[in-house]
Design a protein around this nucleic acid. Structure first.
Lengths: 158, 158
DNA sequence: ATATCTGCAAAGACTTTGCATGAGA
DNA sequence: TCTCATGCAAAGTCTTTGCAGATAT
C-alpha cells in the first residue's frame, strides 16, 4: 500500500473485515479524507481531493465507495437542494458533534448548528420510539434542516 | 381558458397577481392537481397527470412552474433519496395537516406522520428564533425526516 | 400591444452500469 | 488462487437552457 499521511490501521478496519469487505487504498483514502474534513463534500470534491494524493483513483470508485459507506452506516448522505449529494462521516474520533443543518436557499451555504440538540434529543428519541412501534419501522437515523436566507442573501433580496 | 374540473378562480390568484405573475392554464392545472393530491409527486408524475387533461402542457413547463411555486413559498420541494425531487402544496384548503416524513431506505416508501408535531412545534419555534438571531438567518421552513426500514424491507434484510 | 409564458429540442449535470484488468486475503 | 474491487468509457436520469411562437393583461 502506498504511503500517505493518515493511512494505516484504523478504527473502521474491523467494520470492513467483519462485513467481508476488503480494505483497499481508495477506501482508506476516502475515509481518511472524511475523517479529517468537516465540510459537506460532494462526490466530486472528494474525488478531486483524493486525486491529489492518489491520481489513479477514479470518480466511479468514489461513488461506489460512498454508496458502500452509506449502506454500512459509516457515512451520512445529504441533499441540500443544489442537485448534488453531500457526504459526512457519521462516527469515529474525527467526527463533529451531533448537529443539524441550516441551509441558505439563496446561495446554498450550509451552517452546522449544535444548539438545542440536547433538548431535541429527548423529543427525537420519543418520536423514534413511537413511530417505530406504530408504523413497524426500524429507524436508523434522522435529518433536520432549516431552510432560509443567510445574511448576505437577505440584503440582496431586500 | 379551457374548461376542466376544479379550474377557475382560486385562493392563489391573488398571490400571483400581487407578485406580477400571470395566471395561466398550466399553472392552474398544476396547482389544482397538487391541491387535490396528497402524495409526494415528482415532476414527471405531475406532468403525466396534468397531461391527461391538457396534453399540450410540456414537462419543461412543469419544471418551470414548480420552481416558481417553490420560490413563492406555495410548494415544498423534498428529496427522499431516490434521485428525483418531490413536491407538496404548502398551504391552502386542500393541504394536509403539518407533517413530517418517515422514509424507507430499502424501497423508498414514504409515510407522512403527524404524531408529536405539537410537542415538536414548540421546540422548532424556539430553535428557529435562536438560530435566526445567532446566525442572522431568515428561516422560511424546516424539514424533519426519519430514515430506516419499513416492515417489508426489514423482513427481506433479516 | 407587449412583456411574459410556453413547448420543443438540445444541452447540461450528476450518477450508474458494463466489462476487462488489477489487487486484497 | 480466486473472488472482490477498480478504472475507463459509455449510458442513463433528471433537470435546465435557447429560442421562436403563443398568450395573458
Amino acid at each position: 500500500m502506498p504511503r500517505g499521511f493518515g493511512v494505516g490501521p484504523h478504527w473502521w478496519c474491523n467494520r470492513f473485515q467483519d462485513a467481508g469487505f476488503r480494505i483497499t487504498v481508495p477506501r482508506q483514502a476516502i475515509l481518511d479524507l472524511l475523517n479529517r474534513t468537516h465540510e459537506h463534500l460532494s462526490a466530486e470534491d472528494i474525488y478531486l481531493e483524493v486525486h491529489k494524493i492518489y491520481p489513479a483513483i477514479g470518480l466511479t470508485t468514489v461513488y461506489r465507495t460512498l454508496e458502500l459507506l452509506v449502506n454500512m452506516g459509516l457515512v451520512f448522505k445529504f441533499d441540500f437542494g443544489d442537485g448534488r449529494a453531500r457526504y459526512e462521516l457519521s462516527q469515529g474520533p474525527g467526527t463533529l458533534k451531533h448537529h443539524h443543518h441550516l441551509v441558505c436557499t439563496g446561495c446554498g451555504r450550509v451552517i452546522d448548528y449544535t444548539e438545542f440538540i440536547e433538548q431535541e434529543k429527548e423529543l427525537v428519541h420519543r418520536t423514534e420510539r413511537e413511530l417505530s412501534r406504530k408504523y413497524n419501522f426500524k429507524i436508523d437515523s434522522h435529518q433536520i434542516q432549516f431552510l432560509g436566507l443567510c445574511h448576505n442573501c437577505q440584503k440582496e433580496n431586500k
